[in-house]
Design a protein around this nucleic acid. Structure first.
Length: 436
RNA sequence: GUGGCUAUGGUGUAGCGGUAGCACAGAAGCCUGUGGAGCUUUUAGUUCGGGUUCAACUCCCGAUAGUCACCCCA
């Protein structure tokens, strides 16, 4: 029981998470439905899993720091360490590894899980978000990249974003890794730092970037700096030394660009500074980039990670996939004005004139519902004018009034609240009119 | 995690060391079988906790939340 000294409960949601009121939920559902529709069209099947995973799953792949400081991790009552999933990839890798011998490869799967990270929230970076994950397992050839990038492109188009409004940037981690580790002889750790620096190249000035590299490598490296400043793929290739491994990497990029071009996807560009984080990518990486002049930014991306299932002691399974966050895409759709207005799911409001007809109205409503019409009854007892006003405010397209006359004759005046138009109808043709 | 900025009815906003205004939204009515306008009435607020002061929404400190930059970005 409450008393005056008791503090009122806050109506705010938990820090960093969102409430979805019906209007927001409708948008969220729209965003998800487009994702699902496109993924299914490409033959991807939906899967799901619990938000809870044993913490070890992330220790195996991610660094200790990320697991300890940026996840929701706690002990359950049986002293097991549990983590709210911060990403879906380990989960899906686990699921694939678990059924490795039963699955028919290539496996095409998608999911739209909610993910958690324990971070200081700010705009566009919350503690809970949803992310479409699309992955294809078991394809070694570049066709997997062609397919996955097609899915990504098709989703953007399905939202109504024009090809001219975004571009797909691609790079090949094979080339970068080979240059850093084999040609330059850097340790895996140092190469990682350089990769991260390269990823930031676009954000900092030439001088600062040069200094960043010099600081990590220990001396000024003109070869790397020149290579990274290449304006296009041709220039990049010219500056590369003759080497079979590098050649293979370049061929992959060229093949991919040509194959996508043939599929009508021509907004693909090579970007030697694209890194996509660091850890598990082993080949082609890509990123969908918003070309909006006011707000040029990376929207989402993915790539090839062939070594992932190894943490489960399984042999490698070549995999290509991407993740697409709901917050970013929602922002883009808002910016471009691409969120369709949501239709009210309620089709009819039955207004009651006098309380004695409420039962009749309820029965009528029930008959209409049996025919799949969404209908509510206004049994407030307020004046008809008020009932209509409320129905209109709710965005309900049609009303009928039920009073003495209607009960007697069985005829109703169906009123369209948008146009104000009224039609006299019987109970039978009420359904057919409302279904249109 | 580090630093900056912000916090006023449900929403959006004024204001001042001395009685917190406005607009929209909500409720009631003008109008007991047909709405969208108008008018009238009305509900509702200084994020929380300390401090300075005769007096704090205002100044100071702390907490919380939001936001921006950095860090990180699975």
């Amino acid at each position: 029981m409450k008393n005056d000294s008791e503090k009122k409960l806050s109506t705010e949601s938990y820090k960093g998470v969102r409430d979805f009121y019906p209007e927001d939920m409708a948008i969220q559902n729209y965003i998800f439905s487009v994702m699902g529709k496109v993924a299914k069209k490409f033959g991807y099947q939906e899967y799901g899993a619990s938000v809870l995973e044993p913490s070890e799953l992330y220790h195996a792949k991610s660094g200790e720091e990320i697991v300890n400081e940026q996840t929701y991790t706690f002990l359950d009552r049986g002293d097991r360490s549990v983590t709210l999933r911060p990403e879906m990839t380990p989960t899906v890798a686990r699921m694939v590894a678990n059924k490795r011998r039963e699955l028919i490869f290539p496996v095409r799967w998608y999911s739209i899980p909610n993910l958690f990270r324990y971070e200081k929230p700010q705009r566009g970076r919350l503690r809970e978000h949803w992310q479409l994950n699309v992955d294809i397992f078991g394809v070694e050839s570049i066709q997997a990249e062609v397919e996955i990038i097609s899915v990504a492109s098709e989703i953007m188009r399905a939202y109504g974003v024009k090809d001219s409004q975004f571009e797909i940037r691609i790079n090949n981690r094979k080339i970068v890794n080979y240059i850093l580790e084999t040609l330059m002889g850097l340790s895996t750790e140092t190469a990682g730092k350089v990769a991260k620096a390269i990823d930031r190249k676009e954000k900092v000035s030439h001088e600062v970037f040069g200094k960043m590299i010099t600081d990590i490598v220990g001396e000024k490296d003109n070869f790397l700096l020149t290579l990274l400043s290449s304006k296009n793929l041709e220039e990049f290739v010219e500056r590369l030394p003759e080497d079979g491994k590098l050649h293979d990497g370049i061929v992959e990029i060229k093949t991919l660009i040509q194959a996508l071009e043939k599929l009508g996807i021509s907004n693909v560009v090579f970007d030697q500074t694209l890194m996509r984080g660091f850890d598990y990518y082993t080949g082609i990486v890509f990123e969908v980039f918003d070309l909006n002049p006011d707000n040029r930014r990376s929207l989402f991306g993915g790539g090839r990670y062939d070594d992932l299932l190894q943490i489960f002691g399984e042999e490698k399974v070549p995999t290509v996939g991407f993740g697409m966050g709901d917050v970013t895409i929602r922002d883009v759709l808002e910016t471009y004005g691409l969120i369709p207005s949501q239709k009210n799911s309620i089709c009819l409001c039955i207004c009651t004139v006098g309380n004695e007809h409420i039962d009749y109205a309820q029965e009528l409503a029930q008959k209409l519902r049996a025919k799949e019409v969404s209908v509510i009854v206004d049994y407030s007892g307020k004046k008809v004018g008020d009932q209509i006003k409320r129905a209109d405010k709710r965005g309900i397209p049609f009303i009928v009034c039920v009073g003495d006359d209607e009960v007697k004759t069985g005829e109703f005046k169906l009123k369209n609240l948008k146009t104000g138009e009224e039609k006299i109808v019987t109970e039978e043709n009420l359904t057919s009119l409302l279904k249109n």
